Amino acid sequence: MTGCSCGDAQREIEEYLQRECCEERRDEIRRRLACCPECFGELEISERLVDRVRECCQEAAPSEVRARVLAAIRVTPCGSGGDC
């Protein structure tokens, strides 16, 4: 990859996916990774995976499932000593 190692690319991919930077920086990361087919492929696969997880996390669980989970949380002691 021109100008950086694949280890650097991995850090940039994480920064890109976590949206820890401005849009200009994201564009710069994308351009840099485009110089290395392996790194760019990893970015694209990772981006699709993260997008899919975000989509799934927005879906609401059925009300009966939410009620069971909340009931289980209420009866489960927190911490080993039961202190909250």
Results as ranks from 00 to 15, higher is better:
C21P: 02
R30H: 04
C4R: 03
P37M: 10
E38K: 10
Y16S: 04
E55S: 09
D27K: 09
S5H: 03
V65K: 09
E44A: 06
E64M: 06
E47I: 00
R68F: 05
E20V: 00
E23R: 09
S80Q: 08
F40Y: 15
G79L: 05
R25T: 06
C22E: 05
R54V: 07
C22Q: 09
T76A: 08
V69C: 11
G81Q: 12
R48F: 05
R68P: 01
R25V: 09
C57M: 11
Q58V: 03
M1V: 14
A61K: 10
C78L: 15
E38R: 09
S80H: 04
E23K: 10
S63W: 01
D8Y: 02
L43Y: 02
C21M: 14
D51C: 02
E24Y: 03
V75R: 14
C22T: 10
T76R: 02
S46L: 15
S5Y: 00
L49T: 15
E28P: 00
S80F: 07
E64P: 00
D83I: 15
I45W: 01
I45V: 14
A61V: 13
M1E: 06
S80V: 13
A71D: 14
R66T: 13
T2R: 10
L43A: 08
E14R: 01
I45D: 06
V53S: 07
C57A: 11
G82L: 11
L70R: 14
C78F: 08
